[in-house]
Design a protein around this nucleic acid. Structure first.
Length: 271
DNA sequence: CGCACCCCCTGCCGGC
DNA sequence: TGCCGGCAGGGGGTGC
């Protein structure tokens, strides 16, 4: 489910209630997520204060007082939900966290592709393997060209590669490439300077706009207060195969590549 | 090294 | 109406 804009929306919905709070205790209901939850996680978190909440790529980061951060990755169907929501939201809760202010946060994940991990001082820290943060200064035309222009891989795969750029998934890769007027299957090596320039601009533009609309809810994305995103109403191409391009009127094409769907406008995104 | 393919898991939707 | 196949925002492993 969640790409950068969705994770950012969840983050913003968590901050007011969670930041600065002490963790009272953590309960694990089922530990069989993508990676098993460490048995000692509850005891290592109990009593510690959440100094700050942040995001890196698609990871939520609970920065703890003293050493260490709790990393939460939501996989495809992970949700962080405040306990005051209706009971129907709490079907697949894997763990929950009680805070000193009386709030309770639950992690629910139907498909269990998500995971949670405590990292100490950058040791084996998955965040270190991530590429540039899309909304940061490092991500620009020359960064993209340097990292991708030698590659024969498709530009869609390249911008979804978390070790190159952190946070773009299947929805926003398609939307970004429409914005940049680049065919999704073009090899990185075929892009020229003005393509890299538009791509850098569109990465920032599309992600920022999606954050403004609190992410995309295709079927089930919700922030921690149970609110849906609204960016799905603004998709130019994603899930719009057979519909008309809002800009040129051509019929949007949908196909599969690398076991993922992709969508593009054959007129706006010429090879 | 790149890349095609398969896996993890549950839910939902459309077609028959 | 019910069943079945295909597909879904994620990442990772294998074998060529």
């Amino acid at each position: 489910m969640p790409e950068l804009p969705e994770v950012e929306s969840i983050l913003r919905s968590l901050v007011p209630r969670a930041e600065g709070q002490k963790i009272r205790d953590v309960q694990v209901m089922r530990s069989d997520l993508r990676y098993p939850i460490a048995e000692d996680l509850p005891q290592r978190l109990a009593g510690r204060r959440i100094e700050r909440l942040t995001r890196r790529g698609k990871y939520l980061v609970f920065v703890l007082e003293g050493k260490g951060s709790l990393l939460v990755h939501l996989g495809m169907s992970g949700r962080l939900l405040w306990q005051d929501l209706a009971p129907r939201y709490f079907q697949h809760v894997a763990w929950r966290m009680a805070l000193a202010n009386g709030e309770n946060l639950a992690y629910a994940d139907a498909r269990r592709f998500g995971f949670v991990r405590l990292v100490i001082q950058g040791e084996q820290d998955p965040l270190l393997a991530l590429g540039a943060e899309p909304l940061g200064r490092q991500l620009n035309q020359s960064y993209l060209a340097t990292k991708m222009a030698q590659s024969q891989r498709s530009i869609k795969e390249l911008i979804m590669d978390q070790s190159l750029v952190a946070g773009i998934g299947n929805i926003y890769a398609n939307e970004i490439l429409f914005c940049a007027a680049i065919h999704p299957l073009r090899p990185g090596s075929s892009l020229i300077a003005k393509d890299w320039s538009r791509l850098a601009r569109c990465i920032k533009k599309v992600l920022k706009e999606a954050i403004r609309f609190q992410g995309s809810s295709i079927s089930d994305f919700l922030d921690s207060r149970g609110k849906m995103g609204r960016f799905q109403k603004r998709f130019a191409v994603y899930t719009r195969a057979g519909k008309y391009c809002r800009y040129c009127g051509s019929v949007i094409i949908g196909d599969r590549h690398h076991n993922r769907s992709y969508y593009y406008c054959p007129q706006c995104q010429v090879w």
